[in-house]
Computed example of a mutant assay.
Amino acid sequence: MMLKIPLQRLSLIVTLCAAGIAAQAFGESAQAAQTDAGQCKGRIYLTFDTGSQSQAELIEQTLQRHHIKATFFLANEKTVNGDYSLDPAWAPFWKKLAAEGHAFGTHTFDHVYAVRDLPAGNIEVKPQFGANAGKKLDWTPAQYCSEMQRVAQRFKELTGKHLDPLWRAPGGKLTPNLLKAGQACGYAHVPWAPAGFSGDELPSDKWPNELLLRKALNGLKDGDIFLAHMGIWSRKDPWAPAVLEPLISGLEKKGFCFATLREHPAYSTVFGQTAEP
């Protein structure tokens, strides 16, 4: 005997069954996502400073392939293209990174090194680029703040986005007066973990990529901040093409996840702010 079901009721049954299947699939998907998150054995915070920009595209593509967000510290450095990293020609690249959810801090516009502290809170500095490149200058904290904010201004012009309230002193050279200047300017300074120094600035004949990869894989632990550059002029055997992909894959196999410094516990208090001029 064939059971006759009214068409409207049959349609309702089909709809409810489909909804049930979809809900079950969504639940299983959410549960899988939670399981994946629960399997994360620690977080590594990848950071990249500007440089020759010879590896900029490779770094972006590698991070995108692995669905990783990183933090970039920007200075207006000379690039392999013959221009500078914060020139308008680089706007599409920075816009793309911003759209992908990466974080950004200032590395001072002219990549200004701190030399030493001076009386009355001043700092002796030495810009690498710009009109005063190679000169030693006596700067007030306000002058150093203005230099950091130049990056924020240019980043807003190039991307329409605000810079994050983070900065990194070029060369990692940080003096007491310089630290105070950055804090007064509204920026939290970001160093890196001892195991987080990629070594990409070191001569490749003495520090081959295989050694640097092994050092990073063996040394990095939960919460470490890792530092590399977007291209180094002096290194003959570039770091990123040989090390970045196997480093990320190796850390993923160990159960590590990755995040920007927006999620780092040490910097959580500065967010909710933007580093505006």
Rank of each mutant, 00 (worst) to 15 (best):
P203N: 07
P203Y: 08
S204R: 03
D205V: 11
D205I: 10
K206T: 10
K206L: 15
W207V: 12
W207R: 06
P208R: 01
N209R: 02
E210G: 15
E210R: 14
E210C: 03
L211M: 15
L211Q: 15
L212S: 09
L213C: 08
L213F: 04
R214D: 15
R214P: 01
R214M: 12
R214L: 14
K215T: 13
K215F: 09
A216D: 11
L217W: 05
N218R: 10
L220P: 01
G223V: 04
D224M: 09
D224L: 04
I225Y: 07
I225M: 12
F226V: 06
L227F: 04
A228R: 01
H229T: 09
M230V: 09
M230P: 14
G231D: 07
G231K: 09
W233D: 13
W233L: 11
W233H: 14
W233Q: 14
S234T: 13
S234H: 12
S234P: 10
S234W: 10
K236I: 10
K236N: 14
D237L: 13
P238N: 01
W239A: 05
A240H: 07
P241M: 09
P241G: 13
A242E: 11
V243L: 08
V243I: 12
V243T: 07
V243D: 06
L244G: 09
L244Y: 07
P246D: 01
L247P: 05
I248G: 13
I248W: 03
I248M: 08
S249M: 03
S249T: 13
S249N: 13
S249K: 11
S249E: 15
E252Y: 00
G255F: 04
G255I: 01
G255S: 06
F256T: 02
F256G: 03
F256H: 06
